[in-house]
């Protein structure tokens, strides 16, 4: 009698645990769509397709701002002086060490293409301001040089480089 009731007991326990486990799996699965819907929707993804930018109208020493995936992209036509300043830095002394050659495309040294979002807290730095002939962020005083590298202030990283390629000498495709 005792043995059979304890066997019945463990069968019941198994049933309770199994039911609880299946219900818990169901609840977790039901939560999935509620979170997944927060992803960018298909039209947003489709609108984030690559864009082409014509560089011909940008004169020496000028820059333009274009938008790709809702982000401002700075395209800066650097002067000889700016290129030299960017190269003459002791890379090892930088907060986020990166040579200028890693930040531009080979053979297109005059073109700096960076995402214009401060790596500190996301404000938009102003071009051609600050002490390094590059960018100055008005929010918390971060300063970037003519290669978009962080030189001074609270930002931890260099300005990010978007994926892009030269389609021709005067045209790039971002994305």
């Amino acid at each position: 009698m005792t043995t059979s009731s304890s066997a019945g007991q463990s069968r019941r326990d198994f049933l309770f645990v199994a039911t609880g486990a299946v219900a818990a799996v169901g609840a977790a699965a039901a939560a999935w769509p509620l979170v997944a819907q927060l992803n960018p929707d298909a039209s947003t993804v489709a609108a984030g397709a690559p864009i082409e930018v014509d560089l011909a109208p940008i004169a020496d020493g000028q820059d333009i701002k274009v938008f790709w995936r809702g982000k401002p992209i700075y395209i800066m036509h650097r002067t000889k002086k700016q290129i030299e300043e960017a190269r003459d830095v002791n890379v090892a002394s930088l907060p986020d060490p990166q040579p200028d050659s890693a930040r531009v495309k080979e053979g297109h040294d005059q073109w700096l293409v960076v995402i214009g979002i401060c790596t500190h807290l996301g404000c938009i730095p102003i071009a051609h301001e600050g002490n390094y002939d590059g960018f100055f962020c008005p929010c918390h005083g971060s300063q970037y040089d003519s290669s978009g590298r962080i030189r001074q202030g609270p930002a931890p990283l260099n300005l990010a480089i978007p994926p892009y390629a030269f389609v021709s000498d005067s045209k790039i495709r971002i994305g």
């Binding site: 769509p33 509620l34 997944a36 819907q37 992803n39 929707d41 298909a42 039209s43 947003t44």
Partner: peptide, 13 residues
């Protein structure tokens, strides 16, 4: 219609 067509699981919701 955009919810149903474009949002992840939008049709389900």
């Amino acid at each position: 219609e955009a919810i149903v067509r474009d949002v992840d699981y939008g049709w389900l919701l």
